[in-house]
C-alpha cells in the first residue's frame, strides 16, 4: 500500500470500529501504521511454516 492507500485503509478500519479520526489524528495513526507495515513485512516475507496448532485441552 502507498501512503494514500494507508490513510484510506486506516480511516475505514477506524470507522468500522466506530472511531472517526480527525485529519491530524489520521495522519499520525497512518504514519505509525506505515512503520508497523514495514516491520510486519519482515515476518510476511519470511512466511514462517505453519505449526501444528496448539489449543487448550482439558486434562485429565
Amino acid at each position: 500500500m502507498n501512503a494514500i492507500d494507508i490513510e484510506k485503509y486506516v480511516a475505514a478500519a477506524a470507522q468500522a470500529q466506530g472511531l472517526t479520526l480527525d485529519p491530524q489524528q489520521l495522519q499520525r495513526v497512518a504514519a505509525i501504521y506505515a512503520r508497523n507495515a514495514d516491520i510486519a513485512r519482515l515476518v510476511m516475507d519470511f512466511d514462517p511454516p505453519e505449526p501444528i496448532e496448539t489449543a487448550p485441552v482439558f486434562t485429565p
Binding site: V10, Q17, Q25, V29, M44
Partner: peptide, 12 residues
C-alpha cells in the same frame, strides 16, 4: 496512536 494503529492491523 500506537495502540490505535496496532488495533487496526490485519490478523494475518
Amino acid at each position: 496512536d500506537r495502540f490505535l494503529a496496532g488495533a487496526l492491523m490485519p490478523v494475518d
